[in-house]
Write a protein that binds this DNA or RNA. Structure first.
Lengths: 190, 190
DNA sequence: TGTACCATGTAATTGGTTACATGATTAC
DNA sequence: GTAATCATGTAACCAATTACATGGTACA
């Protein structure tokens, strides 16, 4: 059976501990370091598929006042599958970024309006960056200052976070540069 | 009629000059600044759809020895549609990057093998970066050294290229850092 | 009274990839 | 010969988004 990238993401999260589809949804709702978003309408069918393939199993946990939970865990063959995938060949995924596309086509819009579009994007990515930096400060405080002493899972999480920080820093600075440049031009035309 | 992002990308490219589906395919095959990839199997139906909506038109240009070309141009309403879209509201697109996901799950694979995965990615993105830098040197040489004097379309292309350079620089450096860190650990365990 | 959270799912649709299909020309 | 380029398209499939669907609890 062929497993999709989403399937491996789910297996990888379950390898770190048992959780329900709802828990998975919460962890994959925002890209805080995971860089793989998914909604519940994708996760529930994926779990059913993985269970059919013997990669995960579940147990129904009744709750009082709240709906029952289906708590999923990973099987031995599931663990083997992620372990092989994670070191396997990795192709460059197709590049699609609407913000950069808009920059490329920015000559089709007014300078002042375009500057506003990029100002908004700059703000959004600065906010994400600030969030990631807060997380990093928290991690550094809880490991004695040197993240390189972290082992396995902790280092893996930190590495993904570093990527988030680098990505959002570069992206927000670029958006600001585009906005400032277009804004200055609009101003100079008055 | 609702136009997809691919549709706007096609309209935007046609706004810069008439071209065939094949030409569009060539320009969207690699992300050199455009940051929106597409294959011919997506482009041809999209052109037909846009033509049905009156956004583009075509003319058959016969050739000797080669198949006939269908050369597409943008209509007034097509130009109006892209112009409105490019300054319109822009939502943050979902984040999905398999390389970062692999870093997050790297504790599931052997350190030496994981270091190899990131070494490969580092090389790939360094090569793309080098290609973009060559393009930038060529542009700077052809505009007298100051890219900020560029107007409209030229500046738009340069802005997208700057994004490509920033993205690949950050990405390749991060991949190298992950690879080096994991490699040093694998070495230290001997 | 309304909104958000918990918790599960399905259905319809759009977007994108891979494979199928044709046929002449040019370069190695 | 055989691969690549030119030039067009369609069909089957997979991945992802949006909308539909249910129902109790907590909080303002």
């Amino acid at each position: 059976m062929k497993i999709s990238t989403l399937g491996y993401a789910v297996l990888g999260l379950l390898a770190g501990g048992e959780m329900s589809g709802y828990d998975l949804k919460l962890r994959m709702a925002e890209p805080v370091g995971y860089f793989w978003e998914a909604s519940h309408s994708q996760i529930y069918p994926e779990l059913a598929k993985l269970e059919g393939a013997g990669m995960v199993f579940h147990e129904v946990v009744p709750q009082s006042g709240k709906p029952d939970r289906k708590v999923y865990g990973i099987t031995a063959s599931g663990l083997e599958a992620v372990g092989e995938w994670v070191t396997g060949p990795l192709r460059a995924s197709p590049t699609r970024d609407e913000t950069t596309l808009r920059a490329y086509l920015s000559w089709l819009g007014g300078e002042r309006e375009m500057a506003g579009v990029f100002e908004g994007q700059a703000r959004l990515h600065r906010e994400r960056l600030a969030g990631y930096r807060r997380t990093e400060r928290w991690i550094l405080a809880n490991c004695g200052g040197d993240p390189l002493t972290m082992e396995g899972r902790d280092f893996a999480g930190y590495a993904a976070l570093r990527r988030g920080i680098g990505f959002e820093r570069e992206f927000s600075e670029w958006c600001q540069w585009v906005s400032d440049t277009l804004g200055a031009r609009a101003g100079a035309r008055e």
